[in-house]
């Protein structure tokens, strides 16, 4: 399975971005092959509305099974749910730490959006 992490960098040492909709990049990590790729999400940084929806579409099309991020708003959550993608809430500082927590099974899935849209 591949999992996505919201981030502002391009390595596993990069910080985990607490924003889902307006995260500059996503790291897609393949758990079976221990390999990752980076996809750009900058198109969303300047949209006034619908950033969460677009990010969720990007994630859904990337073929991942779940997303690990800080917070997720209501519109993004609806799209991710419809696409059958689990959302894991995580407070870890870096992508590597978040990946470790995921592997250890300490992360919890969210069953609803945990912030309002435009929360930051």
């Amino acid at each position: 399975m591949k999992i996505a992490f919201s981030t502002s960098g391009e390595t596993l040492e990069a910080p985990l971005d607490s924003r889902f909709g307006r995260a500059p990049k996503f790291i897609l990590y393949d758990l079976e092959r221990d390999y990752f790729e980076v996809i750009d999400n900058r198109q969303n940084l300047n949209t006034s509305q619908g950033a969460g929806i677009q990010s969720a579409e990007t994630i859904a099309r990337s073929g991942v099974g779940c997303i690990v991020t800080g917070h997720c708003g209501p519109k993004a959550f609806r799209v991710l749910s419809a696409a059958g993608i689990a959302v894991y809430n995580c407070g870890e500082a870096t992508v590597a730490d978040a990946l470790k927590a995921f592997r250890e099974g300490t992360l919890k899935t969210m069953d609803s959006a945990d912030v309002e849209g435009h929360w930051i």
Binding site: G50, I53, V79, A83
Partner: peptide, 17 residues
């Protein structure tokens, strides 16, 4: 405007968009 989103499933609609 991403008011309707579909991934091989029933579309998700955001009337406010």
């Amino acid at each position: 405007f991403h008011a309707i989103v579909s991934f091989g499933t029933k579309p998700v609609i955001f009337p406010e968009m």
